[in-house]
Simulated scan of single mutants.
Amino acid sequence: MLDTHGRIYVQPLIERTAKGLLRLGLSANQITVTAFLVGVAASVIIYFDQPYLGVAVLWISGFLDAVDGSMARLSRTSSGWGTVLDVTFDRVVEVGIIIALALRHPEPKILFLLMLLASSIIIVMTIFLTVGAVSDKQSEKSFYYQPGLAERTEGFILFSLMVLFQSYLVYTTILYIFIELFTGMQRLLEARRILKE
């Protein structure tokens, strides 16, 4: 939701950063890989019980993840390979955060909830990617970007809450699962509508 409706407010900063990195001779794919490595570093930092630093590093990763797409569009180098890297690395970063929290909280109830969260993310991403692949609708991205309640920014907010308030991890994880499943239903209903048109 925030990616779809709030991007306009941060896009000028994203574009300035993208132009600056392009002037330095960096490519969109190089920034995609950098965002991935920074995101993985966030998981390691969180595992070693540095939640504030871990969350800050996670958000830097997320910012770079937004910048790489703008770089590709500005330099007219958007590619299917870049999209595959971007989407795959995003999921690896998310899995890394879940694994870091699971290693820090091996209690069965929390592990079960984290497993449900990972499963809900897989289900919702399957819907998102499948609709993007079969839809004729266009967006500025290389495939149809289906909006929903939980997009990348909401995921980062929820992960931040999970990391910063680990004494409430059960409740924040349940909240994240609920929001993911709600988003999945939103996207299924929209898919039914647009694919029957």
Rank of each mutant, 00 (worst) to 15 (best):
M1K: 05
R104C: 06
A150V: 15
S78M: 13
L129G: 10
Q166S: 12
I179D: 06
V67F: 07
L85D: 00
G62Y: 00
P147R: 09
D90R: 01
F178I: 15
V92H: 00
G54L: 06
A42P: 02
V10F: 01
D86A: 09
R152K: 06
E190G: 12
L149Q: 11
G80C: 08
L169R: 08
T4S: 06
Y52K: 12
L189V: 15
G69M: 11
K19W: 11
L164Y: 00
L189G: 14
P106M: 09
K141G: 08
Y145C: 09
R91E: 01
S78Y: 05
A35P: 02
L103R: 02
L22D: 08
L22H: 11
I97Q: 00
E180T: 12
V57K: 03
S75D: 14
K109P: 07
L181V: 15
V163N: 01
F128E: 01
T130R: 07
I98P: 00
T153H: 00
Q11V: 09
F159T: 03
S79L: 10
M1T: 04
R76W: 07
G80N: 10
E94P: 03
L64Q: 03
G148R: 09
G39L: 10
S119F: 13
I174N: 11
Q30T: 12
G148M: 12
S119L: 14
E15Y: 11
I45P: 05
V57Q: 01
L114P: 04
M1W: 04
L24T: 10
S119K: 06
P108W: 07
V170H: 11
G148E: 06
E94H: 04
G184N: 13
L53W: 09
V124N: 06
Y9L: 05
V57T: 07
T83N: 10
Q50Y: 12
D49P: 02
Y168L: 14
L13P: 01
D68S: 11
I127P: 04
G155F: 06
Q186A: 15
T183Q: 10
